Deep mutational scan, measured.
Amino acid sequence: LVRYRTISKIPQITLNFVDLKGDPFLASPTSDREIIAPKIKERTHNVTEKVTQVLSLGADVLPEYKLQAPRIHRWTILHYSPFKAVWDWLILLLVIYTAVFTPYSAAFLLKETEEGPPATECGYACQPLAVVDLIVDIMFIVDILINFRTTYVNANEEVVSHPGRIAVHYFKGWFLIDMVAAIPFDLLIFGSGSEELIGLLKTARLLRLVRVARKLDRYSEYGAAVLFLLMCTFALIAHWLACIWYAIGNMEQPHMDSRIGWLHNLGDQIGKPYNSSGLGGPSIKDKYVTALYFTFSSLTSVGFGNVSPNTNSEKIFSICVMLIGSLMYASIFGNVSAIIQRLYSGTARYHTQMLRVREFIRFHQIPNPLRQRLEEYFQHAWSYTNGIDMNAVLKGFPECLQADICLHLNRSLLQHCKPFRGATKGCLRALAMKFKTTHAPPGDTLVHAGDLLTALYFISRGSIEILRGDVVVAILGKNDIFGEPLNLYARPGKSNGDVRALTYCDLHKIHR
């Protein structure tokens, strides 16, 4: 019993810090008490220290592992850092350059016999395009090294910054494609005289377009951006097909006994025919423009016929181009109408809503002055909100995010209106959640004399007048207030005048 009563005193000691020596009952000389009392004092002292730490809000209350900052290894790049964003855009520009100039170089340097010394005699450094290609190869190699040090988000939505895990993730992902696209074939085969082989191998750079397509997928929600990307894709495919079309004609031209190829026909049409040795002929500019003209006309199913396939190889390629053109029509131009419709969806919704308003007016036989006010209010409210119901949009977000959005939407009023000066951010967040926005066209009466005042109004834009009878008592403008002081009276009061809008007004109100 003594032991039980001794232990039962522990909660009292913990909360009230009572010393055991003052209790005459606990001072009985028993061996059990002498053993338990020192333990009680020690526990009391420890609990006292913990309570003191909690009340003082000291940093040592938290466990040590929670006080440590997340460790980022040296030379690790955050995937959302500004440097990584700028670097990704730079790589994107280099990939676009590669997609345009690599097929052009591979096709127009394929057994090209233009006048001038061969590239091997001039030297590697004197070729501007080769120098640019070398810079692109170096940048792609540097990009691989950067990807080995860039964080990523795993399946659990955690940012991984450990170098080993980053390397394994990159090896399992895009490393092989990036490595093949970054191989400097110019340096590996330079001086061997195989410019045709170098041009063909350099087309491996186009593998990076797969990554670019995935990154550009984030802009699919913007109709104008999608339309622009589709047109660029169409032009890029036409450019690639033009390079292939020229390569076919250029390879067949020296081996044909009869002059029936499209390059021969082009030379005869523009007065620059090929001679018996295969030299001469149109310039590279004429060849490229004509090839691009043929691919565009074939892809769009126009086909004027002034550039036509004559050999079997050219006919087979033309059939493939027609098939590609039909697929592009289905996948690209078939979506253009939907994209344009999405661009004008706001206008369509406006006309639909206006039609419903006019049908309501016609069905209920609203008189002319009231009908005009109804239409003007709808037009003004639509121009202010673009038909978007803010309350319906915010309803799907958590309250903390709703408060931040409301604070942002009402920031101008909260910053410049005098009653809100000096208020804490928590108070402003709470008030912003209570605001209701209303609009009024010129001549609209917001409050009639004798109406119950259940709200306090803040003028965000425009001006109003307060009338008693036919006498203008006051004219209020931006950041002015009218209405009933909230919670100042037990019952809502009545208006002693009319409140009429002089201009288009936007008002925020808080109800009782």
Rank of each mutant, 00 (worst) to 15 (best):
N265S: 13
I248E: 01
L323T: 07
Y293E: 01
G346V: 07
I189A: 14
N310V: 04
L187T: 10
F397L: 08
E359W: 01
T98H: 01
P369Y: 01
P163H: 03
D444Y: 09
E196L: 10
K215M: 04
H416T: 10
T352H: 13
A348L: 15
R373V: 04
H408F: 04
K111I: 03
M179C: 14
T437K: 11
R349T: 11
T424R: 08
S301K: 12
Y246L: 01
A224D: 10
K111Q: 03
T385I: 01
F83S: 08
K172G: 05
N265F: 04
A99F: 01
L67M: 14
L129F: 08
I244D: 01
I138T: 03
L263P: 01
I198R: 10
P103A: 01
T424Q: 13
P282L: 01
C232R: 01
M322V: 04
I183E: 01
Y329R: 13
C427Q: 10
Y329G: 04
S297P: 01
N310S: 05
S258K: 15
S326H: 01
M251K: 04
G164P: 09
P103K: 01
V289D: 01
C400V: 06
D133R: 01
V180Y: 01
S298V: 13
N306H: 01
D143I: 01
P128M: 07
E196K: 14
R342N: 04
S383G: 08
L414A: 02
N265T: 14
P369K: 04
P309W: 01
P309H: 01
G281A: 01
I135Q: 01
G267P: 01
M256T: 14
A392C: 04
F190C: 13
K425Y: 09
S337D: 01
L209W: 01
L241G: 01
M139Y: 03
V289S: 01
F175N: 01
L78E: 09
G303F: 01
F304Y: 14
T76K: 01
Q341K: 07
H364M: 03
C400A: 10
T385P: 04
W87L: 01
L299C: 01
S308L: 01
L343M: 04
S194P: 14
L374S: 03
D143E: 01
